[in-house]
Design a protein around this nucleic acid. Sequence first.
DNA 1: TAGGCCATCTGGTCCT
DNA 2: AGGACCAGATGGCCTA
Length: 212
Amino acid sequence: MAPHPSGVPAVEVTHETEQPFPVASNKEVTCIVSAPPSPTRVPADCVEAVGSGCRGAPRKLRVRRGGRSRPKSELALSKQRRSRRKKANDRERNRMHNLNSALDALRGVLPTFPDDAKLTKIETLRFAHNYIWALTQTLRIADHSLYGLEQPCEELGSPDRGSLGDWGSLYSPVSQAGSLSPAASLEERPGLQAPASPACLHSGALTFSDFL
DNA sequence: TAGGCCATCTGGTCCT
DNA sequence: AGGACCAGATGGCCTA
């Protein structure tokens, strides 16, 4: 893993030094608003009747003009639709496989033990989120200590003080809030304390189980 | 058996 | 037109 440009701690990965998966694109999510509930599926044959969709601007009505393309028989159209659908399914399957590969790569850099049960997808994401937060804190406090501002373990709430249960709550439903800011996510969860001070992390006082 | 997790299919929407 | 992305639906597998 290459050093992060924004100062996020570079986690040393011994078993995987190259980019484990390609960064497909930096395209941003274009629609935050989820699609409206569409309980009834529109048959493929009725696509033309659906003029507008969920994503913001209404779609232009497609006007069929004759003579643009050669009319096809129903059989040919059906075969073409099936073929397109099959290809789309293959792409979608591939896309999900890539997504899962990325998730596996993420699992690979998280501090876990070989014998541990595989983290679920949501667990992996939440754990990574909090792990990054912990490492960020580590760097921050390390910077402070450079200037002689030593911070004892107790100040950030070490497991020794019985906050292990709070780590357990990382996987509780409240952590599904979706906050992208670790600090903010902690603020949203009053009962949740910071895991440990950097000294505790560096000294190996904290183990994977502490994160769970 | 209920519930959680997951893979896959599918149709809609947006983008190139 | 075709690909990418997304979310809903569905069914299989596993576990408490």
